[in-house]
């Protein structure tokens, strides 16, 4: 019933889109982790202007479906870029810009909002007394955060960061709307030839599953290492 040869072949076609998905995920995380952390700090310390701005930004992202966000950015970013290119005299044709750059923007924006809430809730779980004790032994706030507070917050944040990462990987599937050559699009294109959609979808599903399970495994390992102090038992 199933075309097994096609099933196997298309698996590797789908897999060829994996590097793009992984690249987008990594770039988005690299941008979103520091920025998300700063925004979380701004919220927690109620920094006057930034606090409100962050709240509005997060609400906007939360209220916008990913696909809509992609449509918005994909249709408006080029227009903005054209005028920037004109001002800076960059002679690139806007249609030659690889959609992956728009993908970086969209997914970063989304992940920054998500991670800032992840970090904010994780930082809340750390007792205020920890910072006070650090201050009273003469540490600066930065030193206190790096040695005491972030490690403790990380234990709580990691499961949520894992979820955010796997969601990010899966969300790259919406990149087809930007003609991004990712997992989904590649497999579907192959399927279009002989209408073997079922096999294609199975392969797409398998690739995402493998990627996400690998991520989960990695996070679990890291979580275990971090938790030694919490559950140390002699």
């Amino acid at each position: 019933m199933l075309d097994y040869k096609f099933l196997v072949d298309t698996f590797f076609v789908a897999l060829s889109g994996a590097p793009i998905a992984i690249l987008i995920t990594i770039v988005s995380l690299l941008i979103a982790i520091p920025l998300g952390f700063l925004l979380a700090l701004a919220r927690l310390n109620k920094v006057p202007f930034l606090n409100r701005l962050t709240q509005v930004y997060i609400s906007f992202i939360r209220g916008t479906p990913m696909i809509v966000l992609i449509f918005i950015i994909y249709n408006s970013a080029p227009l903005i870029l054209v005028s920037i290119f004109a001002k800076l005299n960059i002679k690139t044709n806007i249609y030659d810009v690889n959609p992956i750059w728009y993908a970086f923007i969209v997914f970063s924006l989304n992940t920054i909002a998500i991670l800032s809430e992840v970090f904010r809730s994780a930082l809340i779980t750390v007792n205020k007394g920890q910072l006070e004790a650090a201050q009273s032994v003469g540490l600066t706030n930065t030193q206190a955060y790096i040695t005491i507070i972030i490690p403790q917050a990380l234990v709580v944040a990691l499961p949520n960061i894992c979820t955010a990462t796997t969601n990010l990987i899966k969300a790259t599937s919406l990149g087809y709307a930007m003609s991004l050559q990712e997992i989904n699009l590649r497999a579907k294109v192959a399927a279009n030839v002989g209408y073997n959609y079922i096999e294609a979808y199975i392969d797409i599903f398998l690739v995402y599953l493998i990627l996400c399970m690998a991520v989960e495994y990695g996070f679990k390992y890291y979580e275990k290492r971090l938790r030694t102090y919490k559950f140390a038992n002699t």
């Binding site: 007394g129 006070e132 004790a133 650090a134 009273s136 005491i148 403790q152 102090y229 919490k230």
Partner: peptide
Amino acid sequence: VAFVFQNHNLFNNK
């Protein structure tokens, strides 16, 4: 000036 807290406030991860 050093401080000893009511709830010890030891660094949990150290």
